[in-house]
Design a protein around this nucleic acid. Structure first.
Lengths: 195, 195, 195, 195
DNA sequence: CATGAATGAGTGTTCATTCAT
DNA sequence: GATGAATGAACACTCATTCAT
């Protein structure tokens, strides 16, 4: 139990530092100085530096998964277009609410190294799949424009979403209105891909 | 002049290595072993490792700039929507044609470190500005849907473009048909943001 | 008493691990994982890692001492040549019966470090003294060839004995016949040093 | 050429330090402080610490090989017993002349770790083979006592030789007379194994 | 211009030991 | 007695950079 606390402290500190300085420029030293703990303590909870990063990304992904999940209640609506809109709004809110994580996910993690790349690609694939499934459902309900390629649209949507989030919430200091950003975003896509 | 050749060889080698292994996992050693040149030679042409990366990015940006430039001939059409479509098509073709560079630009460079970050952000800003200007022109010509926020749309467009390029041309081994990809892309955006 | 058990368990585990992996490559961690005991428990019975090794060696030496001791009964024979032959046979049997200890004594312990070296040299001296005393007795009984230097012969005998034991019992997987090995050994030395 | 010098300096320093303090208690730091060279220099010539030790042992073995080789001139004598006597005398002289190496070979190297063990065993095997071949030749010439087991005798001889060398030349500070030691040694074995 | 031997500050990681519970 | 979380000195090894030739 107490150990779990320490583990979390290390993750919290690493999160902040990775987000701020990047993976390679964050050193174990920075973390232990930040937390005022012993060097070895870090290695009692994590196998190595990579491992800390992995945990951070995994946690982040699972949190996102929960956030965008359609509840049983909501599923009664049975409107895939509504689902996708909800997921977009929630994802944007999630990105805005977890800026450090998001900065890591969108900027730091891609292209770090051969060990971390597979994880980030696995996550990206899973995220894309969620969107793709919504789009496929929409097509079955005949809500999708006929000339839309689902995979292409999914990537397009996610790319747009990431960049929007990054520029509106992460890079910019000023707090953009999430609601407005989300509505603008949804509006364009509604017009672009739905009938 | 002969020196210029050497310089280019180093850039070429570094390009390939950075794209493949990332910035931090590529060592000066890899480059000199690749080119069979002396260790010091690299430092005759570049101040340090960062500098090589800078040059690579700068070159890349200027090349893109030229590729998407609207020629005087084309400018006679005076149709901003056509301009944007052309830029999208050309950018996708550019991304597809310079995969290593593109991989560096889209995956490796962001979030490397505090020294490289400003450059990548400067480039991103300039790219965004090009798109924004097109959109502003489109608005003046009343081709843009009224409810579109120009900055938001620019980010959205570029984000979508990047991801599309990355997944269709960089990550995937199979050669996607650039023309088809571009048309699909343009169609969605035409429907989404133009009147 | 229960504590004594624990102490012995630790020694047993350490014995096996030291013999297998050497002193430096055996970690306290290996021992506690092997015994499923707490980290601190080891330090309740031993001052430090060196101490465990010391105890192991001391125990081993005392065991050997008992094994090669000439009983009061045997002493009645009053034949130093017979004594030495008995000691050689018993030592070889001892080495064969305590392979892990023997491997530690012959291969692991020598040259470990400045702290352990004195102990191993003390033991070696005491072992040599036993042999030397036998030889001196033999000389008094005029059983020793006149041109034999006692100290030299003692070292020679022990060196030969150690190597024989190591190669026949420790390194080789196949079980050599101790009796035959001992007889071969004794025969050469009988011919070499006794009248 | 100049690099070769550095390499040798490092080997010389490492030799002395390994012999004095053992493998694990000798640190790269000790070597570079001793030679007043940079940390990285060591790694320009050796892959790692193990590698230095390997080179040292290999060099030593090859030197010994040369020392005990029977020259074409000597081979004309055609007396295997004389060969073996020469080898014993020369090996003892070699041990006495290369005390640091010998201390490493006899005390430090055995049982260091799983990486170094194979090398030391390979050398020991090759050394034993030389002796064994001499003994086999002696048997063909009918100079060997009939009840001698060649492998056993070879081990016995080498064990005795090692210990004699160690105690007379390495451990003892006082310079033993190599000639006398060798003659004593040869005499016992002549009586013990030859007809 | 080209070289490559030399450098050393900096990295992640290890592991024996301690001590509060 | 028993535990195991915490420690931090130590260590091997890395790698961008320099500079004499």
């Amino acid at each position: 139990m107490k150990g779990e606390l320490r583990r979390q402290q290390i993750l919290d500190s690493a999160l902040r530092l990775f987000a701020e300085k990047g993976y390679y420029e964050t050193h174990i030293d920075d973390i232990i100085r930040d937390l005022r703990i012993g060097r070895g303590t870090v290695y009692q909870y994590f196998a190595n530096k990579d491992d800390i990063f992995f945990q951070l990304l995994e946690d982040y992904y699972h949190r996102w998964k929960q956030v965008v999940a359609i509840s049983d209640e909501e599923r009664k609506i049975n409107d895939p277009v509504a689902y996708l809109r909800m997921r977009i709004r929630r994802t944007l809110a999630f990105f805005a609410g977890e800026r450090e994580f998001t900065r890591i996910y969108l900027r730091i993690a891609p292209g770090i190294n051969k060990d971390i790349e597979p994880l980030i690609e696995r996550i990206e694939t899973m995220v894309t799949d969620v969107v793709r499934q919504d789009l496929e459902l929409a097509r079955r309900f005949n809500h999708l424009r006929d000339d839309i390629d689902i995979s292409g649209a999914a990537n397009l949507l996610i790319g747009a979403l990431h960049r929007t989030a990054y520029y509106d919430f992460i890079q910019t200091e000023t707090d953009a209105d999430i609601g407005v950003t989300a509505e603008n975003f949804v509006r364009v896509f509604t017009a672009g891909i739905f009938k």
